[in-house]
């Protein structure tokens, strides 16, 4: 673990921001404050942050329906995101897209995506751009999305074109209500990716350091011109597939156990305090700071301007 104090604080702040953002949404959705389908990322923070802490604005990521974590990790404005999810015309996408479509192209964040498996081919295209600038392009996918033909096509094309694309498979063991062991025919996403002819490794998706170190290796590998790579991250989702999911597919006590034993924020805290890299009070201070940020994001979202009928036909090139 050769991380500066600043780097550790930044990594934790990012993970905590995602967690607090999602926990707050969970509460506000239950209160009926937010419309639409919302898929929370809590539990998987070490994945998004472990990947994105390596990236700059000229590196690209593309996300999924479970996109808030990737957006925050890639530097999207948290207040703008909250406003978007609240449906304000002042939101990051003017209230047009909502939770499932948050994007910030200037930050290299090519969008959350409502179509499972749609991201990987687009990441290949961003990989063409990234190759010309010495950057990388990251496709986040789930264990469900890995079964989509579009994902297979993208992996093969990235190999054929030797592009600096990294396919990040966040294996949270469920696609909606279906267990990964049922839907993924191959032994693992790693075995499958390797069969496409790319470097494929696994990392521990609840341990920031495991993800971070593995990604360092893959990014160096891709930037050296070796073509694409893939990584499978073993991780957990702490809420339902979408808010409102009764989660009958979970085993008895499963969620309590995951939150107790497989919480990436707790893992991080334990590791850095035991190694005496940070003190408990450093982490507590970040918690307080982040809670205030989320509180402010919600307050501003509630006070933010609402869209009107006239906004429907903004950003179309023509109307009839």
């Amino acid at each position: 673990m050769q991380h500066s104090r600043e780097a550790l604080i930044q990594a934790y702040r990012q993970m905590k921001t995602i967690r607090a953002f999602e926990e707050r949404l969970h509460d506000d959705i239950a209160l009926g404050e937010i419309a639409g389908f919302t898929h929370l990322y809590a539990g998987q923070e070490a994945c998004a942050v472990g990947v994105c802490e390596h990236l700059g604005p000229a590196d690209y990521i593309i996300s999924t329906h479970r996109g808030h974590g990737h957006c925050i990790a890639k530097g999207c404005d948290v207040v703008g995101m909250m406003k978007e999810i609240y449906g304000s015309s002042d939101g990051l996408c003017k209230g047009k897209g909502g939770s499932m479509h948050i994007a910030d192209i200037n930050k290299g964040m090519l969008g959350a995506n409502g179509i499972v498996g749609a991201g990987a081919p687009i990441a290949v295209g961003a990989g063409i751009t990234a190759k010309s600038t010495g950057n990388v392009s990251i496709a986040f996918s789930g264990d469900g999305a890995c079964n989509q033909g579009t994902t297979f096509e993208a992996m093969n094309m990235a190999v054929v074109l030797k592009l600096p694309v990294i396919f990040v498979f966040e294996n949270n063991h469920y696609s909606e209500h279906t267990g990964e062991s049922y839907a993924v025919g191959a032994e693992s996403m790693t075995v499958r990716s390797a069969a496409f002819g790319m470097k494929a490794i696994k990392a521990n998706g609840i341990d920031f350091f495991s993800v971070y170190d593995a990604m360092r290796e893959l990014i160096d590998y891709c930037k050296a011109g070796n073509g694409p790579a893939s990584i499978e991250l073993d991780t957990e989702r702490f809420y339902g597939h979408f808010e409102g999911d009764p989660q009958r597919y979970r085993g008895k006590g499963e969620l309590d156990r995951l939150r107790e034993e497989r919480d990436c924020l707790k893992v991080f805290r334990t590791k850095v305090t035991e190694a005496k890299l940070l003190e408990g009070k450093d982490i507590d201070a970040i918690d307080t700071e982040v809670e205030a940020l989320i509180e402010r994001a919600v307050a501003e979202s509630k006070a933010a301007p609402r869209p009107t009928a006239a906004h429907v036909l903004e950003d179309v090139y023509i109307s009839y």
Partner: peptide, 16 residues
């Protein structure tokens, strides 16, 4: 997709 739901899960088939 998920017309049974719960396949390969601890909750078992027909979860949804």
């Amino acid at each position: 997709e998920d017309i049974v739901g719960g396949m390969g899960s601890a909750g078992g088939p027909e979860a949804i």
